[in-house]
Amino acid sequence: MSENIISVCDEKVYEQLYREHAEKICYYLYYKYGDMEKAQDIVQDSFAKLWTNCAKIIFGAAKSFLYKIANNASINDYKHQKTVLKFKSTEQKTYTNESPEFQMEEKEFMHKLNLAISNLKEGQREVFLLNRIEKKTYKEIAEMLDISVKAVEKRMHLALIILRKKIGNV
């Protein structure tokens, strides 16, 4: 009977879990803290915990275990730190028919937007970027963060209003 149970200790199963979740958790943490290195560290620790406890965790619960560990780790380690996001702008287009003035304006706009996003509250920023960049639905985000869909909706709403206020009318 035990053969029918998928064991997290099974290397294949573990690899599958990693391929499925590591990247998502990493980006989620990145959007939250704006620090890719920290995000990767936490991901590594979370998966190490999954590995050391693999005998105790049933396959179905692995995902929520990982998110729980990732969330706890973040809270423990980085609670007191105020991180500043550093978003890279996409590569400059190789060709353009836009005027230099327009390009300047756009650059300024991006800079302001970047700053405004950095200054969003952690909860708002992670939700907003998961939705806008990762294209996650509210429902998916709610599951990830263990909050209600309504709460996600509210954070999105507030985030957008704040961004609009910070940037003003360009």
Binding site: Y30, K88, S89, E91, E106, M110, N114, I117, L129, I133
Partner: peptide, 8 residues
């Protein structure tokens, strides 16, 4: 413009 942001 948000979508223009890249991620690592």
């Amino acid at each position: 413009n948000v979508e223009k942001f890249d991620r690592p």
